[in-house]
Design a protein around this nucleic acid. Structure first.
Lengths: 152, 152
DNA sequence: TAGATTAACTGAAAATTTTTCCAAAATGAA
DNA sequence: TTCATTTTGGAAAAATTTTCAGTTAATCTA
C-alpha cells in the first residue's frame, strides 16, 4: 500500500499513544472523524498496524534486571538450529531473540527480577536448551532510550 | 501496589491485545465490566501500565534492516557520557540504547531500510556524534522472537 | 480537455463501549 | 463480631466507534 503524509503522521501518533480518540486524532490531522477511522482501518487491514498493546513499566512488576545474552551453538546443523529456536522462543524471560551475524549466532534480550534470578534463569532454563555451545552475557546498567516507535 | 492473580492475568491480556473491550476481558476474567474497568484504571494510575501503543510491522514501512551496534566512548568522562546519551537518543533510527557492562559501553538497536541506509546512518549520523571511540555492528539475519510482553 | 470512474471526505444517525453512580458483597483490622 | 474499607455488579449516562448516504476530490481514459 502507499502512504501519504497524513498516513505517516497518523502512524506516528498511534505508535506514541493508541488510546487517543478519533476526534483527538482528527483535530491533529485536520480531518473528519470518519476519515481518520477509515485510514486507521486501512492500515490495520493491510497489516501495517500489527497489533495494539499495553506497555508495562518493568520496575513496577519487579522485572528490573535486563541482560543481553550472546549465544553460540555447538554446531551449525539445521536440526540444532530449528530445535534451539523453538525452545528459546518458549522462555517468557526471553523477550527477544535475534539470529545475527558476527562471532555469536544469537542475541537475546532477557528480563528478570535481579541478578540472582538471572543466574537461576541461566542455570535452570537457558543452558538446559540443547546444542548451546557457549554464552556471553552483558548486563544493562541504564536504559538510555527504549521505544517501540519505528520511524516512518 | 499489590497484584492478585486477576491483575496478572489482566496485564497479560492487555500486553497481548489492548483493543479488547472490557466486556471481552470481563468474560475471560469472570468479572463484571465495572470491576475490569476499575482494575485497569488502578493499573494505569499506579504507573504499572505505562502507555498504549500501536505496533507497526517494520516490513510494511520499508524498515526491514535491523542492526545491533556496540559503541565504545573515546573517554569515560562524565561530560562525554551525558553528551553522547543526549545525542544518540535524538536519532529516530535508534530504537534502543542501553548502557551495558562488558567490552563496549553501549548497545544500540538500529532500524533502517537496508544495508545501504545503514551505511548512510553510520557515516552521516552516528559517527557524527562526539566522543565515540569505536563501534562494532551485528546484523540481524532473522528475528526468532520479538515481544513487548513482560512476564508478570 | 471532458467525461467517467474510483477513492476519500463530511456530517448525521446508529451501535457499541466507556464511565459514572449507587447499593451490595467481600475483605481486613480492631 | 463489628466497623471501615475495598471490590464488585447492574443500570444509567456519557462518550466513542461504526455505519450510512450524499458530496467532493482525485485519477484515469479516450
Amino acid at each position: 500500500m502507499k502512504f501519504d503524509a497524513i498516513d505517516k503522521k497518523l502512524l506516528q501518533l498511534l505508535q506514541t499513544d493508541s488510546k487517543q480518540t478519533n476526534k483527538e486524532l482528527s483535530n491533529k490531522l485536520n480531518l473528519s472523524v470518519t476519515a481518520v477511522f477509515e485510514r486507521i482501518k486501512k492500515l490495520e487491514n493491510n497489516g501495517v498496524i500489527n497489533k495494539y498493546v499495553a506497555l508495562v513499566k518493568k520496575e513496577k512488576i519487579d522485572k528490573s534486571f535486563v541482560a543481553f545474552c550472546h549465544i553460540k551453538l555447538s554446531q551449525h546443523i539445521q536440526e540444532y538450529v530449528v530445535q534451539f529456536e523453538k525452545d528459546v522462543a518458549k522462555l517468557t524471560e526471553v523477550l527477544e531473540c535475534h539470529h545475527i551475524s558476527g562471532d555469536y549466532d544469537y542475541l537475546l534480550k532477557v528480563m528478570v527480577k535481579d541478578m540472582e534470578a538471572f543466574r537461576e534463569f541461566m542455570v535452570e532454563k537457558l543452558t538446559n536448551i540443547s546444542h548451546i555451545g557457549s554464552t556471553h552475557s552483558m548486563f544493562v546498567i541504564s536504559e538510555v532510550k527504549n521505544t517501540t516507535a519505528i520511524p516512518v
